[in-house]
């Protein structure tokens, strides 16, 4: 990698241009232009459609600070992001460990497939299948009542736990995959060396394996935290009335209220907050990694 970079810099950028151009052209057209338009919208009083009057304003950004609802919802979304990320670590890391260090050959392939399977099904279908499972008289409720001798009432639908369950299910594969990659790169002899020095399996885990797999944990957490904070589909469908989060409010501005300028402004505030959080966390995480 370093060698290739060195060669590239010696020859200059020119020979690399035909290789870079398609990607950058695509990024410019597909992301940069629409995003710039959104930045532009976020400073407008109204959409310049159908000859409506509009002017520049900072009012959309001011709205975030003047109405406590938005910051309350942003905090709720950040908390949701943290909780979902935490659950993904708790559920995904052990699975990644078993995949990387315990299983071999065909059984590893089979389990791997099961982890990746959610990626291959439609997101909306996944969420609605959770709705079938979680609602009263749904699959979980029926199954538990069929087994248990006493009557219990399981109705998780339209609740905070339902949102968490749906989001964790959607995002846990990212954690499994990133952690799997770093765990697999850890030489087994390091684990053996730790144990030969008198460390128990638990001590080896905390002092050797977890620190060495930190890059995977961090990458996985970033991959999960950022989209979960802005998520709207799972909160809307599985959360119902309790599922109002920052992401659903932004979605409302675009699809229900048609206040695109406010929606755009709220999006960029979210982007800024997430970037600030990642920047603040970076030095701590770098030390841990």
């Amino acid at each position: 990698m370093a060698d290739q970079l060195a060669i590239g810099s010696r020859r200059g950028l020119k020979p690399a241009l035909p290789l870079l151009l398609p990607a950058y052209l695509w990024l410019t057209v597909a992301i940069f232009l629409p995003l710039s338009a959104m930045v532009f919208f976020s400073f407008m009083t109204d959409l310049p459609l159908a000859g409506k009057e509009w002017s520049f304003t900072l009012g959309n950004y001011a709205a975030f600070f003047s109405q406590s609802l938005y910051s309350t919802l942003l905090f709720a979304s950040l908390r949701l992001g943290l909780e979902v990320t935490l659950w993904c670590v708790v559920i995904g890391y052990p699975a990644a460990y078993v995949l990387a260090k315990v299983l071999k050959g065909r059984s590893r392939e089979a389990i791997f497939l099961l982890v990746i399977l959610p990626f291959w099904s439609n997101g909306l279908v996944r969420i609605f299948s959770w709705a079938m499972v979680l609602r009263e008289g749904g699959i979980l409720d029926t199954a538990l009542n069929a087994v248990l001798p006493f009557k219990i009432n399981i109705d998780l639908m339209y609740s905070y736990p339902a949102v968490i369950i749906g989001l964790v299910h959607s995002y846990v594969p990212y954690m499994v995959l990133t952690c799997y990659l770093t765990l697999q790169a850890i030489d087994d002899s390091l684990i053996e060396a730790g144990r030969s020095l008198g460390a128990s399996r638990r001590q080896v885990l905390w002092r050797v394996i977890i620190p060495l797999s930190m890059p995977g944990l961090i990458a996985g957490s970033a991959l999960i935290f950022v989209p979960v904070v802005g998520s709207f589909m799972e909160p809307r469908i599985l959360g119902g009335r309790t599922g109002t989060f920052y992401g659903t409010v932004i979605e409302d501005q675009f699809v229900a209220v048609f206040n695109w300028p406010l929606g755009a402004a709220l999006s960029f505030i979210l982007l800024a907050v997430v970037l600030i959080i990642l920047a603040l966390a970076a030095p701590v995480l770098r030390r841990a990694g």
Partner: peptide, 20 residues
């Protein structure tokens, strides 16, 4: 008796130093 209780010292072929 498992490794960690045997009070042995071992040097590995690839040294197995903890890179972190």
């Amino acid at each position: 008796v498992p490794v960690e209780k045997r009070r042995i010292g071992m040097v590995f072929q690839n040294y197995a130093l903890f890179p972190n």
